[in-house]
Design a protein around this nucleic acid. Structure first.
Lengths: 349, 349
DNA sequence: TTGTATGCGTTATCAT
DNA sequence: ATGATAACGCATACAA
């Protein structure tokens, strides 16, 4: 008796149907379903049996509607197929579910603010009880206006002033990365950044890089902006050749790249140009995406504790929702850690 | 005037507030919001202005409640940080949004059926209008019972009898992969499979492998089960050494692996054992995950048209929901294609 | 311990 | 062209 996939097998049974079958009132059924005490054992059993028979499933829509609050947690994510976000998203969903919330995802992809806004509006119409912001773009004033005053928002993995945030200390992470290179004996260390890094975080990483070098008495350079795949870079607004920045007697012997994806692209660039890693050039990334641990990549990098970020983020937004957390935005920092792999070594003699 | 993140700035304005401000009835506001015609221009303008002023946002909860159907599309996903699923998930969300649906994600992770079931139940309470099934596990009879009769379901990227499905032709993909190796001159080609592949798909891939070899008059072996990271494999229930299957004069000169993640693990295994790829051993994968295209990986593989799978899946489930598609489950196949990279070459002389 | 009544914000039907 | 009104399924305050 294979059931056809066509659904409408009549209407879903309601609390009323259960009440009728059990021979009690709707209130009693409601009490049973919600686990309220003050229901006799016999009644409870009768109701539960009726529920079983009818295959009754509470209508969350109705419940949320009448209670004027949902158990929906909105998740704004930039790039679900970026493993970094996919990973966090998964953990967020897990933590939320354990707290009784279902997660509603919205891709805020690309840089188009209007598009992002329309999605946020659609999400807000569903009245999520809270929102977790995972993307590092789509944070336009319009979005802030729409989101900020309707619902508690937490930024996971980045910091934004107008909401709670849980993020790694970027400057500390950058220091760890840079210090590692310094400890290996490098003096000419460049800082390379690519798109895919939130501006504020990128700046903090550059500051950490600077501060480590300064403390070591070594020269710190300005951010070198590179578009992965290209040959040219931009330094302080003027163009230059990536090849020249790396090779040559004055070139860098090591690079700290603001993110793993960029660092891996750098590895590939080096491969194509016969620059040996780590023999000729050491590279450190930031994030510790899964990719970085592949033997063929083996990127030394700074790990972000994603699990902690996800957990604390959800806890924070839940606390706001419950009113347990009030007042101005709270900005939590979590600690990065260095993961040493095969992309770094002492400079060539 | 930075607004505190504490939410409750009073209640959200309702259709009633708008009506009062505009000096019309709720019905008229409703008509304006829904774009019903039969509203005079002047009235419409007044109402729209009131909406603007109040920042009114329709309550989707109430709407869905009264209309007895939601615009929620449930997505059951196994592993959001598996790039393959992350990628599809992202596309599914995009297509759904364009059709006016918001996506509600549930991670059905691990192999624990009870856990998966509780999540499905939670999802169902939200009354999604349809469900897209992305995971290849969590398809227990219980889940079928809960899901199958409540809501239209489409399986994206895999096939299951009790719902519509959109998937690649696995045997054809396997044939493409195997034929590629045959064309390169290989005769001793092994089939390796790992977990992470749905059983039915895995079997179909093995059949395609067999059929290509048979047509070429070359020997086809049984599936070699390998747990990535390990040294041992299981062939027809008995244990063996992976190293011996690959090396030696009688060993395979090429491998078709049932999935990219396994194939990449194989690459790493080869690296560790001084087996050169593709010099000593050619490897072909299946899926074409992003990873596979990295220069340092450069895996020859069979591509699944994810975009098409996502698009057609959503279209299918929307058609079911709308009643445009009735009758028994429809199983659509999409075409795989071979992507040749650097992990394959003619066998050593 | 159980039942009754009211309201949540919206859509849709029926009057006007 | 616009307004009044009855659902929708459930939670909750209150009555019995």
């Amino acid at each position: 008796m294979a059931s056809s996939p066509t659904h409408p097998s009549g209407r879903d049974p309601t609390i009323f149907d259960v009440a009728a079958l059990a021979g009690v009132s709707k209130s009693t059924v409601s009490n049973v379903v919600r686990g309220t005490d003050g229901v006799s054992e016999t009644t409870r059993a009768r109701v539960e049996r009726a529920i079983e028979i009818l295959g009754y499933r509470p209508n969350a829509l109705a419940r949320q509607f009448v209670r004027q609050r949902t158990t929906i947690l909105g998740v704004l994510v930039g790039d679900l197929d970026n493993p970094f976000y996919g990973d966090i998203a998964k953990r967020v969903e897990r933590v939320a579910f354990r707290s009784g919330y279902t997660t509603m995802f919205c891709n805020i992809e690309g840089e188009d603010d209007d598009f992002a806004l329309s999605r946020v509006e659609a999400l807000l119409e569903q009245r999520p009880a809270g929102v977790v912001f995972l993307a590092f773009f789509g944070r336009s004033p319009d979005i802030e206006a729409a989101l900020g005053k309707s619902v508690p928002v937490v930024f996971a993995g980045l910091r934004e002033d107008w909401g709670d945030s849980v993020a790694v200390s970027n400057s500390l992470g950058a220091k760890l990365a840079t210090q590692h290179l310094i400890d290996l004996g490098h003096r000419r260390i460049a800082y390379v950044t690519t798109r895919g890094v939130e501006q504020r975080a990128g700046q903090a990483r550059h500051r950490g890089y600077q501060s480590a070098l300064r403390a070591a008495g070594a020269p710190a350079g300005p951010p070198i902006h590179w578009e992965p795949g290209g040959e040219r870079v931009t330094i302080k607004g003027r163009e230059a050749s990536l090849r020249e920045e790396l090779g040559g007697p004055d070139g860098a012997t090591a690079i700290f790249c603001s993110n793993d994806i960029g660092a891996i692209a750098l590895l590939e660039y080096a491969d194509r140009h016969d620059i040996r890693i780590p023999g000729d050039l050491s590279v450190v990334g930031f994030d510790d995406v899964h990719l970085a641990s592949l033997a063929r990549i083996s990127l030394t990098t700074v790990r972000q504790p994603l699990d902690e970020i996800a957990r604390v983020s959800v806890e924070t937004v839940l606390a706001r929702m419950a009113g347990d957390l009030v007042g101005p935005p709270r900005h939590l920092q979590v600690s990065p850690s260095l993961v040493v792999r095969a992309s770094t070594a002492p400079p060539a003699a």
